[in-house]
Design a protein around this nucleic acid. Sequence first.
DNA 1: CAGGGTCTAT
DNA 2: ATAGACC
Length: 670
Amino acid sequence: MKTAVAATITTALPAQPQHEAPRAKVGEKKNREVDSDARVILHFDYDCFYASVIENAHPALRTRPLGVRQKSILATCNYAARARGVRKLMPVTQARAACPDLVVVCGEDLAPFRDASRRLWAFLRGAVAGARTERLGLDEVFLDATAAVAYNRALLNPNALHDSFFHLSAQDPERGFTFDATRFAGCVHPPPGGQGEQHAGSGAAVLDDPVRVRLMLASHLAGYLRRRLEDDFGYTSSGGISTNKVLAKLAGSINKPRNQTTLLPVQGEITIQEFLDAYQIREIPGIGSRTSSLIADHLFPPGKAARAGGQEPEQQTPSGITVRDVLRHPDMSPALLNRILDRPGAERGGGKKIWNLLHGVDASEVKEAGVAPTQISVEDTYMARPLNTVPEVLRELHALATSLVRRMRLDLTTAAEELGDPCSAGSAGLPPRTQQKRRWLAYPKTLRLSTYAHPGKSGSASPTSIPSISRISRSQPLPSFALDLGRPCAEVAERLVREALLPLFRRLHVGRAAGWNLALLNVCVANMVPVATDDGNGGGAAGGRDISRMFRTQGERLREWSAWEDDTTTATTASPSLSPPRGGNGIIDGEAEDGAAANGGSEGTNDVEDAGSASAGTEVWAADDGDSDSDVGWEDEDGASVAQQRCAACGHAVPIFAMSAHERFHAMGD
DNA sequence: CAGGGTCTAT
DNA sequence: ATAGACC
């Protein structure tokens, strides 16, 4: 049946062009590596992610200006706060000055963010058969939808474009959504209407340009996925749709909160290049601060004439140098960039890579990440009061080691499914009180300790531009007792400190017995070795995702889509609900405790005082927990109210989609 | 500045 | 094994 549907529609369509000629590209004659527009890449960026996680756990905060604090700065803030002048990375004091009733929540424990990120990612990776997904940090995801888009393009019926159906799986024809193929979903850049552009509405005319059709289809896919992220999980996002990663990401930033943009490369380089030209080079993903300043310094040597903008000698940070400035520079070429960027440790084809990025060319693939991380690290900074004595260092090492061991157990183990033991068949109710048996998915071979000395004190370096003399590290094999699941985290951690971390510390700081002025400690495990499993593929890196490889070649994609193995198992097991075995606090408690803790001394005080005297902080928490309702009703865009449930634990009214997140926070606090 | 994380080059 | 660059 399923195949019948597909086959019918397929044969009703004219055969696909065997190969679409790649557009001519900058530097095409030199090099074949320039990417054709063959791919379709989506980029998702969850709007102010940390703040959204907090809001989902405490919906009453949604309507209030909210900032998420890490140490003394705001890691992020919601849009209500931004409307009142609060910005990302703004010092807390400054933010409070700008917005006195700002609600500030501590975001130093990343566990809730990590958890939310993983669930959203699990959804995205299971949503589109044959797609590969890559996570960038906690709040961004790339999705290579080339195969799915090709499949759906072949199924398009030119006579019923308004009533199209996007298939998310070739196996299950029911899985998908309807859409209007005569238009794009969301915004398009450059905006329609310019140049000699046809209006998109005119029937099959739209189908003429293959790249355009693919991106149109992809825009609907992105729109659908974003809607589900919002409706099912409570997370709004910004989406970018284009033909490679760098363009997709840039596209997504054009229309920021809760919107999406499809970047059309179709009018040839001119459009794309004009679009890119105005960006400061630092804003191009893949061009970091180091590269930017090397280029800026070369083009406009410091101490010489002012720049095009005629600005004052600003910080060298944003540099003001635009893509156009670089590309218009006399003699500019990949080779010149290579020379500019050449330094010990520099990437080999570095100049060419930057050159390509500046032209919107990016051949890098969307890398499907493994289930297990390749590295786990835990760190804390001590800018306000650097560490100088052995007892201080020991105390911090112990704290770090404890959370490291906890993280290892959380992220590197999985519930052990006893293969020959169907005892656990009644799995709905786990055996009460018994520890869930866990098994290592992968284990780290290496333990590393890094430190870095306070820049301002005694170790004089120019604090502004060069963070060069920063981290130093030593590593050694991870002792095997670290993998002992039978002992409490704290016990393992203690032994780890004594037998491994302290020796590493001595190796790092030979000579001085004290007085290191340490502003940072980082403990890390790395070099993960996948543990073999019975299911045929190693539990680690690429496990189980090889199948997506099958969809890469154009010629075979249809057949492969039809041959797609049932992916429902992967989809459902992809969202592991590891119950957090943490004894920690909810975020709110964490904030209160943070302020009261003896630990920091310096930065906690502000929060406590503010919370106590200034109305904002505590009031909200109190109202949030106890008083069930001054609650502003939940409304969606049109003002219709959103279905809510009462939380059994706290009685708070919570939108249904947010309930699971809300409950998790209770679970963590208890 | 924060707290992580990934990849690359020696 | 260690550092650097990017996010």
